[in-house]
């Protein structure tokens, strides 16, 4: 909805240059290992053992990637991971938006306690949650299903989703809702027509976090699945017995979709970190 974010041009003062240098260093620190994984994954399988390491894939080869993707169970696992990620996003937003709205707009008894409890979900190690959940899901006939993993990922994503949604809704002046209500809509209508459209960016960021969380989560996914693992669970399960090129290819396959997703959601990401919207 908003026009491109315009930043005033500033002169490159020494402080700014220093800040850029620091940002560059941190970025390189994070990205270099990923880059090395990508290089290793895109080389012929034998080149993985070369020393010194190549800094670019030479010769370029999709042999490792093809081998990885053709391995038994990888493609279905990738599909399941995508489905679970999307389900997690949908469920987390469907539950997190109303909760976030309540925290943002209503003064109700026990509001502070609720906020504390929301965050405290993350205080439980997933280990403690996963075992009883596995038993419960077996009883419910949900074990080893896409839905069970998506439900657990939703629980893990909800605290951040709720807090992000609440902070995003707080940025919409309540006068806008009141104006809409005075013109004949219900509160729900005002939220639907005014608050949600104005919160797209922030909710997009919340969706991003939920997806990446689900995409990367391995422990709950490994405990709750046997024959139908997610991609990380599949890779972790196969890691011990697989050759090195397979591992690098797996690493790249895990990283790329998340990177692509983040790339497309990046304006939303910035808004979640409080960068001003125009």
């Amino acid at each position: 909805m908003s026009a491109a974010i315009r930043r005033p041009r500033r002169r490159a003062t020494p402080q700014r240059q220093l800040a850029y240098a620091a940002a560059g260093l941190i970025t390189a620190f994070m990205l270099f290992p990923l880059y090395l994984i990508a290089v290793a994954a895109l080389q012929p399988r034998t080149a993985v053992f070369d020393y010194p390491r190549a800094l670019y894939p030479s010769p370029f080869s999709i042999e490792s990637m093809a081998f990885f993707l053709n391995a038994t169970g990888i493609l279905p696992a990738l599909g399941r991971s995508l489905v679970i990620g999307v389900m997690t996003v949908v469920l987390a937003l469907a539950l997190g938006c109303p909760a976030g709205y309540a925290v943002a707009r209503y003064r109700f008894a026990g509001r502070d306690l609720v906020q504390l409890l929301i965050v405290s979900v993350r205080a439980f190690p997933i280990l403690i949650l996963a075992i009883p959940l596995a038993v419960t899901f077996i009883n419910w006939n949900l074990y080893d299903s896409v839905l069970s993993v998506a439900l657990v990922h939703t629980v893990m994503a909800l605290p951040l989703t709720i807090l992000l949604a609440a902070s995003v809704f707080l940025r919409v002046p309540s006068e806008l809702e009141e104006a809409a209500m005075s013109m004949g809509t219900s509160r729900f209508g005002a939220v639907w027509r005014i608050v949600l459209p104005l919160s797209r960016q922030g909710l997009g960021a919340a969706a991003l976090f939920a997806f990446v969380l689900s995409w990367n989560e391995v422990f709950a996914a490994a405990v709750l699945t046997v024959r139908n693992p997610t991609l990380p669970a599949q890779i972790v399960g196969a890691l011990g017995q697989s050759p090195l090129p397979f591992r690098f290819a797996g690493g790249l396959a895990l990283t790329l979709p998340a990177l692509v997703f983040i790339f497309f959601m990046r304006p939303y990401l910035f808004s979640a970190f409080g960068q001003a919207r125009s």
């Binding site: 909805m1 002046p173 009141e178 209500m181 005075s182 013109m183 809509t185 459209p197 104005l198």
Partner: peptide, 20 residues
Amino acid sequence: SPPGRRDIAMVFQSYALFPH
């Protein structure tokens, strides 16, 4: 009655125009 059923219209100090 809720605001929408009072047959009123309000002009806010901040104008409260819908930015989108």
